[in-house]
Design a protein around this nucleic acid. Sequence first.
DNA 1: CCGTATCCGGAGCGATACTG
DNA 2: CAGTATCGCTCCGGATACGG
Lengths: 132, 132
Amino acid sequence: MSVGHTEVTDPAALSCAEDCGVRDVQDRLGDKWTVHVVVELSSGVRRFRELQRLVPGISQRMLTLTLRRLERDGLVTRTVHPTVPPQVEYELTATGYSMTRLIRALVDWSLDHRGIIAESRRAYDERREARP
Amino acid sequence: MSVGHTEVTDPAALSCAEDCGVRDVQDRLGDKWTVHVVVELSSGVRRFRELQRLVPGISQRMLTLTLRRLERDGLVTRTVHPTVPPQVEYELTATGYSMTRLIRALVDWSLDHRGIIAESRRAYDERREARP
DNA sequence: CCGTATCCGGAGCGATACTG
DNA sequence: CAGTATCGCTCCGGATACGG
């Protein structure tokens, strides 16, 4: 089994009945904020407030939840500095950083095909509109 | 840098406020059945019933919904043969097939890191249990 | 500054029943 | 065989208020 092939992917990879951890990654990649947060962290250490400014639209609650999940999965470290006012820094781990390459693949594919997808949708919807 | 891709190099590509199509792909990759269905279709043409057997646990309703969305996005073609009983065949388009490479990246990354993630979770949860 | 607690609407998905 | 139609549950995520 070489890498960089052009042939069919092995279906058995996903057929492991218990979803062998793929589901967990899908959940993170699929949710609303994780990808954005990881992307911001990819450029270096960030504080909580800083992240909230960098990720427009995210609420305090969702930023906390997202960071906790990343921390739990070992993708992000959280360091508290016992200062006044409190200061907490977040940073990608090696694993977290390696995920940015996966995200990159996701983004590249999306950008490469967004035109085709959009056009396909437009055509599909138009076809459907004509058949009530 | 990379060849054959768009010129986007900065991960901040995700910062495009309107989510430039990445959200759509995340939604498909993140939902419960799309990846499984695409993987099964990657080995060739399949009929509806066939897919339902190949993807254990999927309901008729969800298989229909999943296939419709894939068709709408131009990732799958649907051909109806006017026979009795009816016979409908699904097949990946070139775009759909190219997505299998993205899925492969997802699966590979997940398998490579599932151990570390699982262990990190175990440790995190244990730490938390000790602090009520 | 950095969180946690609570309430609530909406989307995703499963179960079931019914058609051509 | 290959769908469509309904109902109901669950859980994500937004808004808001409060605490260290």
